[in-house]
Design a protein around this nucleic acid. Sequence first.
DNA 1: AACCAGGACGTGA
DNA 2: TCACGTCATGGT
Length: 236
Amino acid sequence: MVFNLIFNKLLEEYSYQGWWPIISYDGINPTKTGVVRGYHPKNYDFPRNDNEQFEIIIGSILAQNTSWSSVEKALINLSNLDSFDSFSADFILNLAVSDENAFKEAIRPAGYFNQKFKYLQNIANFYIDLNGRIPSRDELLSIKGVGNETADSIRLYAYGQSEVIVDAYSRRIFSYLGLINEKDSYIKIKKFIGSNFEGDFKKYQEFHALIVEHAKRYYTKKPYGLSDKILVEFKK
DNA sequence: AACCAGGACGTGA
DNA sequence: TCACGTCATGGT
């Protein structure tokens, strides 16, 4: 269970991360850098309703290859277009038809706005068809705009399903530590981590958030990881 | 000024 | 299957 040991170390270092942030939630986590709203450390009751659930789903699309601060701008822009029901699938679909221009301007700060404009509609239709049911991984992957990482993010944070998320940060950290090969397939890495990690969905949620927090500090500039003194004890 | 950001898709080997 | 180009804005 080497990844549990790594988890323990990261949790000790950074404590609880309160992912996935809900921007309409007033929880304050002053220790966060950059973003001051929406996190809810040690509270796993989120999402508390359909709109919060769909907000996480929208965020996971907008966050593709994009910094969270940019995603937050896009989410706030969207919410300003309809303060009442901003993050319902119906609102997204209606806005896409009624004012395509305003929609794209709202999400522009998150980048790839033409692609994400379509992806958001795809997943809004999918979400409505679900009718409250929890989607399987394969169902999510069938949506154009949802790949492995987004599917796992949605399952883990919008639906509380235990999924290992393999992102670029995970590849950098764990390949630096000699636990994986950076270019191994997503599924191979996911299964390897999953077979050496144990816990409930809360632990899975914290694990991914902690990986991101740690990587932001030591794995964003090449050569990655050289200044990582936190996890170096796990280096093989 | 290059590189990175909480990636995914289309194409051609 | 996989390497590569494309999508785009914002920060360092």
